[in-house]
């Protein structure tokens, strides 16, 4: 078996706060294989973005403490010097950020910003880089690349800007593309276009994609594998089909049950997981999800074990035998809201 493109082991991130260090991410481990799309799902504040930013060295080192190991092509990113990171960022790992409206520098033209990235990482001449920039803009489906290249970000719509951000991310043929909720800020129709674009890119360039999202619909459409995060930990991990057909963790049940069904009678109201995720400094001992869990057991006060199966795992006390019963019980209680 070849080693994965990205292997993260025991990643912990904590931020300095008034009360000392507050842990945001605790012993997070996952991997990304060549050419696969991994979706990381979870509510806001579950640490999805922080995990990947810490790996790229994009957190402020004065407030964030990062521990663990993140091997990208065998190199540990967390030990790399700033210079090495600069070579990897934008060249081998590219980032598509959440809000295209604010992701581009307002005072430079689109073309200038793409050319800048190309010229930072390659020895291309200005002219060749400009030609490449136009080509990229064409590839992401912009109709008049030459005109757009001369425009400033504020002159473009949100969807157009996200295409530009994607074109820029692709400019150096990265082997890993991190897309941080790339569709959250966009209209539904534009969302579909952007997802199409990402899928096509994976097919044409063979890059791996890490897609951060909280939209299970996007997950179903895009992911090969899914990582469910809650409170800074991976609570469940597995192949997409497996997760959707047989979710192990009660949190994943909740996420899946909150998707509106496509057929059958329209439910009176959609299910929602009660409560909200705990603040990082107020996470309960034992299982973090316990206060919101419909299947909580007395032993959930202790740290839950990791249940493992073929190619998947979940952080929960419920084992194979207990799961179906617990889930149907939870379903019933959902139908009769307190």
């Amino acid at each position: 078996m070849t080693s994965p493109l990205l292997q993260v082991r025991d990643l912990s991130v904590s931020f300095a706060s008034r009360k000392g260090q507050t842990a945001i991410i605790e012993t997070l481990s996952f991997h990304v294989d060549e050419g696969e799309t991994l979706c990381i799902v979870g509510e806001s504040g579950s640490g999805k973005t922080v995990a990947l930013m810490s790996m790229l060295g994009l957190l402020d080192p004065r407030s964030a403490r990062v521990e663990g190991e993140a091997l990208f092509k065998g190199r540990n990113m967390l030990q790399a010097s700033e210079r090495e990171l600069q070579r990897i960022r934008g060249r081998e790992i590219a980032l598509i950020s959440q809000d295209p409206m604010t992701a581009l520098t307002p005072v430079h033209t689109i073309g200038w910003q793409i050319v800048e990235q190309i010229r930072t990482h390659t020895g291309l001449s200005r002219r060749a880089a400009e030609a490449r920039a136009l080509e990229l803009l064409g590839e992401v489906g912009i109709a008049r690349p030459r005109m757009v290249a001369e425009q400033y970000p504020h002159q473009l719509s949100g969807g157009m800007r996200q295409r530009v951000v994607i074109a820029m991310a692709l400019s150096c043929n990265p082997s890993l593309l991190i897309a941080d909720e790339p569709t959250t800020a966009l209209d539904v129709t534009v969302q579909a276009q952007v997802l199409d674009l990402l899928r096509r890119l994976r097919r044409d360039f063979g890059s791996s994609i890490v897609l951060i999202t909280h939209d299970m619909g996007v997950v179903a459409e895009m992911a090969d594998r899914v990582l469910v995060m809650y409170g800074g930990r991976v609570v469940e991990e597995g192949q997409t089909e497996a997760i959707f057909s047989d979710p192990w963790h009660p949190y994943t049940w909740g996420l899946l049950d909150s998707i509106p069904p496509l057929d059958g009678p329209r439910p009176e109201r959609l299910f929602s997981i009660p409560g909200s995720p705990p603040q990082p400094d107020r996470r309960p001992a034992g299982c973090i999800f316990r206060p919101r869990c419909r299947a909580a057991l007395p032993e959930c006060n202790l740290a839950p074990p990791r249940q493992r199966g073929a190619d998947r795992n979940a952080l929960c006390f419920l084992d194979e035998g207990e799961r179906p019963v617990a889930r149907s019980a939870a379903r019933r209680s959902e139908e009769q809201p307190a």
């Binding site: 994009l58 934008g90 060249r91 980032l95 520098t105 800048e116 990235q117 820029m168």
Partner: peptide
Amino acid sequence: DFIRTARAKGL
């Protein structure tokens, strides 16, 4: 955000 983008570009 655009500063983060600039960093992520490897500048």
